[in-house]
């Protein structure tokens, strides 16, 4: 299966940078304009994936496995984060009966 990567190598790394930047910005936009906290959370996952993609691309172009290991860690942490975050969202929903982010206005210090 090595012939596919060889063709892909003709694509400059900078295109991957552009792709992941665009993905990141889309995620950011979603985080800011969506009101449903679950969607916001999902948009954060998009941002994480954008970063992952860039890291994998760089690791692959450099031929260094360490970058991919980092992505592995990112995924692990993301999984833990999502599970805890969703548990918290469920608890908030139980208390406030909403997932509208604008109604989470009790975080005043």
């Amino acid at each position: 299966m090595n012939h596919i990567p060889e063709i892909i190598r003709t694509i400059p790394l900078s295109h991957y940078v552009a792709l992941s930047s665009a993905l990141f910005l889309i995620g950011l936009l979603g985080v800011l304009i969506r009101k449903n906290i679950i969607i916001v959370f999902m948009c954060i996952e998009i941002m994480l994936n954008a970063v992952n993609l860039l890291m994998v691309a760089a690791a692959s172009y450099r031929g260094d496995s360490a970058g991919q290991v980092m992505v592995l860690f990112t995924m692990a942490v993301a999984a833990a984060e999502v599970s805890v975050g969703l548990a918290i969202i469920v608890m908030i929903y139980k208390n406030l009966k909403t997932t509208n982010i604008d109604l989470f206005d009790q975080m005043k210090g």
Binding site: L28, L32, K35, I37, I101, F104, D105, Q106, M107
Partner: peptide
């Protein structure tokens, strides 16, 4: 600024 709204905080962090 500190209105306690999660959405505002997200905007601030950005």
């Amino acid at each position: 600024l500190q209105d306690g709204k999660l959405s505002s905080y997200l905007l601030y962090s950005v």
